[in-house]
Amino acid sequence: MAIESPVPENDTASALSRRGLIRNAAGAGAAGLAAGVLLNASAASAATPGRAEPAAQPAAAEPDRRAAVAEPLIVRLPAAGSDALDIFHGEEHRQVHDADLAAALRKAAG
């Protein structure tokens, strides 16, 4: 039977769990590749920032922006034939309109 002692200093988050990776996300994959392109595109184009439907949002709190910088982002093309792109990054959702980029991503997706 183990004897109780003070909390060990190597107390670690469960980094191997799915939840752990949410906090320590590093690998980006295809979404990350698109992310770099899209960040530039959104800055250069007439971006239309927008959060998801306000009715579905929890009470506003200050997003952890330092964590967000380290996270990969996820991009969605919501509708065929549309130039809209949804960008999910950190705790933000922005929608940008870029016909060329949307077409390029669809082409890349096959």
Binding site: S17, R18, A52, Q57, I74, F88
Partner: peptide, 25 residues
Amino acid sequence: TASRRAARVIEPRTGTDHESGPFVQ
């Protein structure tokens, strides 16, 4: 209420996933 992040990608071969975007109820 309980809310989850709007987007989620399950990473292959790692047992991990990644979530992004605002919390959605």
